[in-house]
């Protein structure tokens, strides 16, 4: 078996002659077992490469997240044209910070981060008897490989777009990776599902907005949390507590 793999690898990694190509083709056509070895070699190489790229993208995401201040300013714009905007932004930011310190004793980001840390760092692999893929995704997430986990959950969704759990976990993984738009889409899609005894979609939408904390996100999160309380949805007790803390 190993001899076959070595032969196959040497063929693909070198520049085979025309005679070698003919011999290789003939073996594929006449020997089903050899053809399977070739298919396995190529599939394994592609899978290894998928993992490489998933890890690289995760690393790029970290680099991107670390550079948040750099994203705000267009680096090609001359600084002298920006000073008015910078000054105005500084004044607005000061007012906002003062207002936040006086009127908002608890930061929504802190609430969201605390909840995520305490409740969403482990997806509990033994909770259901789902297939290997779902367990693999959860295992990857629990081990801190959120980007790979997201790939797995999205791969499940590419086959079965209505899978409720896969959408929920994909949303959680995206939230962890700060891919907020993606997380909001997944959570919104499960929030719109009716008939589930437990549906955390709306609560998670609010959580995502609180963590993202862009202008108007807090207002939108409060609106969603109120709906969670009024409709007595999943996590309504936490939603009520947060609403009290955000007053």
């Amino acid at each position: 078996m190993m001899e076959n793999l070595e032969y196959i690898e040497d063929f693909f990694k070198s520049n085979p002659t025309e005679d070698q190509k003919k011999e290789f083709d003939q073996k594929i056509i006449s020997d089903p077992s050899f053809a399977e070895d070739v298919a396995f070699y190529l599939s394994a190489t592609q899978s290894a490469l998928d993992l490489v790229n998933a890890e690289k993208k995760e690393n790029f995401r970290k680099l991107y997240n670390q550079s948040v201040p750099a994203k705000v300013v267009d680096i090609k714009t001359p600084v002298r044209k920006l000073w008015r905007y910078v000054a105005a932004a500084a004044v607005i930011a000061s007012v906002f910070i003062i207002r936040l310190l006086i009127f908002s004793p608890v930061s929504v980001e802190e609430l969201a981060a605390k909840y995520e840390k305490e409740n969403l760092t482990n997806l509990g692999v033994s909770m259901s008897a789902r297939g290997d893929s779902m367990q693999l995704g959860k295992n990857l997430y629990n081990k801190g490989n959120a980007a790979q986990a997201l790939n797995v959950f999205e791969s499940i969704l590419s086959r079965n777009p209505t899978d409720f759990d896969a959408r929920e976990y994909a949303g959680i993984a995206a939230l962890h990776l700060k891919q907020y738009d993606k997380a909001l889409n997944y959570f919104a899609s499960i929030a719109s599902e009716k008939g589930y005894f437990s549906n955390p979609g709306k609560f998670y939408q609010a959580l995502t907005l609180m963590k993202r904390n862009r202008p108007k996100d807090k207002e939108e999160a409060i609106k969603l949390l109120k709906e969670v309380v009024i409709e007595n949805l999943s996590m309504s007790d936490i939603a009520k507590k947060w609403l009290d803390q955000m007053k």
Partner: peptide, 14 residues
């Protein structure tokens, strides 16, 4: 033969 590959399974085993 490649079309029959279970990619998730293969990545999981990897």
């Amino acid at each position: 033969l490649i079309d029959k590959t279970d990619w998730e399974q293969l990545r999981a085993k990897l």
